[in-house]
């Protein structure tokens, strides 16, 4: 199963959102603890989370980060950048402005030492295409995150696939997020909605019903759920919290990652929970998501990405440790004893 692959483990610092926002760890402390617990060597970050001077990272901040990485024996893998088209609610900026906004973030990624940026589908193919010359000059790869609620056959993703084909640049590719190919809504989330927020069960049940309806498009689920909440008198706060499941968890078929395999630059092993027995995530079948990459002998970096901070103040380091123990069993399964 593991023959031929060269998947390198790492972590997204996004997994430690609780620690960072809770101020128990600043950025150097996150890197030190990542190294101490052996959760690298790959390190991914979100530009607007980790760096105060983003989107125009100063040389001082970039140098401090590169030094901290080197001291910890870690290696930068991927930097998340954003497509901030709506700097004022409801008012879109022009493509030319969005191109320049991406360019600033790409130059910062280069300054920080990242070889790859993860961009958002909201950028649009036209904007990303215009940035290819800059990517070439920076020797920076650009990966579209395939993230819920979209999957490989959504028109938005198809438009990127067509553009990538037309441009034919080795610097353009994909970053599959395993949360786009989940098997269930995380129980930790539904329990949070019911037990912590006190949301009515009928609202949670309706959302789960809609999430499982494969005949609905992402926007349809939101529209239907909003109409249900209005008709049932569900508080807007419950509506908005529960509707989050439509945006961060998708029902794609993980076997279909093979369709884009040659253009995959990096992997997000998104997870919410770890089974205490075997370490698997009940909501996201990590083994099924990894299978196409193992079978193809894919080479590259994988980031553990715990998103539990959405509903929990849990310990991100402990969660990533648990997932990486599980990942190790998938990537390097013990040799079977010869059958007699």
């Amino acid at each position: 199963m593991s023959g031929g692959h060269a998947i390198r483990l790492g972590v997204s610092l996004y997994s430690f959102t609780n620690e960072f926002l809770g101020r128990s760890h600043d950025l150097p402390a996150l890197l030190r603890e990542t190294a101490a617990r052996g959760l690298g060597p790959g390190v991914e970050a979100v530009g607007f989370q980790s760096f105060r001077s983003f989107p125009d990272v100063t040389e001082a901040e970039a140098g401090a980060f590169r030094d901290a990485l080197a001291e910890a024996g870690l290696r930068p893998t991927c930097l998340g950048i954003t497509a901030d088209r709506f700097l004022q609610p409801g008012q879109a900026i022009a493509d030319s402005e969005l191109i320049e906004f991406h360019a600033r973030q790409m130059r910062s990624a280069h300054r920080l030492g990242f070889p790859l940026v993860r961009f958002q589908h909201a950028a649009t193919p036209a904007v990303i295409r215009a940035l290819v010359p800059l990517a070439e000059s920076l020797e920076l790869r650009m990966g579209l995150e395939v993230h819920a609620p979209l999957f490989l056959d959504h028109p938005v993703i198809l438009a990127y696939r067509e553009m990538f084909e037309a441009v034919g640049s080795p610097l353009l590719g994909f970053i599959p997020d395993f949360g786009a190919a989940a098997r269930a809504v995380p129980e930790v989330q539904t329990a949070y909605f019911r037990d912590v927020l006190g949301a009515p069960s009928r609202a949670v049940d309706r959302a789960l019903f809609l999430w499982h309806d494969d005949n609905l498009q992402p926007l349809d689920r939101l529209t239907d759920f909003a109409a249900f909440c209005a008709a049932e008198g569900i508080d807007d706060r419950f509506r908005d919290e529960i509707a989050l499941i439509f945006g961060i968890i998708g029902r794609g078929d993980p076997a279909r990652w093979s369709e884009i395999m040659p253009q995959v630059f990096h992997l997000h092993a998104k997870f919410y929970d770890c089974d205490p027995q075997d370490g698997s995530d009940p909501a996201i079948d990590t083994a099924a998501n990894l299978a196409p990459f193992l079978a193809a002998g894919w080479q590259g970096d994988l980031s553990s990405e715990w998103e539990g901070h959405v509903t929990s103040r849990g310990d991100g380091f402990a969660m990533v440790e648990a997932q990486q123990r599980y990942l190790a069993t998938l990537l390097n399964p013990p040799a079977r004893k010869a059958e007699v």
């Binding site: 979100v46 607007f48 989370q49 105060r52 954003t82 700097l87 004022q88």
Partner: peptide, 8 residues
């Protein structure tokens, strides 16, 4: 989870 422009 991340910084935001004050205009938002």
């Amino acid at each position: 989870y991340q910084s935001l422009p004050l205009s938002t």
